[in-house]
Amino acid sequence: MFNFNIEFTGEFVAFFLLSVCAIVGAVLAINFTKVVHTALSIAFTFIALAGLYVVLEAEFLAFVQVLLYVGAITILMIFGIMMTKHDGEGNEPARSLLETLAAIGCICLFGILFFAIRNADFPAAEVALAEDNTREIGMLMFTRYAIPFELTSVLLTVAFIGAIALAKREEGEE
Score class of each variant (00 low, 15 high):
G162Q: 06
N91V: 14
A50R: 00
I81G: 02
F16I: 11
L156R: 00
Y53W: 09
T143V: 07
L166A: 15
A167Y: 11
E11G: 03
E89M: 05
A29N: 05
H37L: 11
I47P: 01
L101C: 08
A43W: 03
A128R: 08
T84G: 07
F122L: 04
D121W: 05
L109N: 06
V24C: 12
A159I: 10
F79P: 01
G90P: 05
F12S: 07
A22G: 10
V20E: 12
I117W: 06
E173Q: 10
F63P: 00
V13G: 07
I47W: 03
M77Y: 15
A62H: 02
V27I: 15
A43I: 12
A130Y: 14
I47R: 01
M82N: 15
N91K: 08
A72I: 12
M139P: 02
G111S: 08
I161E: 11
K85G: 12
A39N: 04
I137V: 15
T45D: 03
N119W: 13
A124D: 09
A14S: 06
V55L: 07
A48W: 04
I137W: 01
V36N: 05
R135V: 15
E99K: 04
E89P: 02
L140A: 08
N5F: 09
N5R: 04
G51T: 00
I104Q: 03
T9C: 02
A43V: 15
E7K: 02
L52H: 01
L98W: 01
I104K: 00
F115V: 08
E136H: 01
I78A: 12
E126T: 06
I47C: 03
N31T: 13
T152R: 00
R144Y: 08
A58W: 03
T84Y: 12
T143R: 02
M83Q: 15
M139L: 13
E136W: 00
A130M: 14
P93D: 14
I78H: 07
A48P: 03
R118D: 11
V66C: 10
A58F: 01
A165V: 08
E170A: 14
G162A: 11
A124N: 07
A43S: 15
L52A: 06
A39Q: 05
N133T: 08
E57S: 10
F16Y: 08
I161D: 11
G172H: 13
E171H: 09
I23K: 00
R118Q: 11
T100A: 15
G51N: 02
G88H: 14
A128D: 09
Y145K: 04
R95L: 11
A120C: 06
G80Q: 11
N31P: 00
V158Q: 02
T157Y: 00
T134N: 06
I117H: 06
D132G: 10
A102C: 05
L67A: 15
V127Y: 14
A116K: 07
E57G: 02
G10H: 07
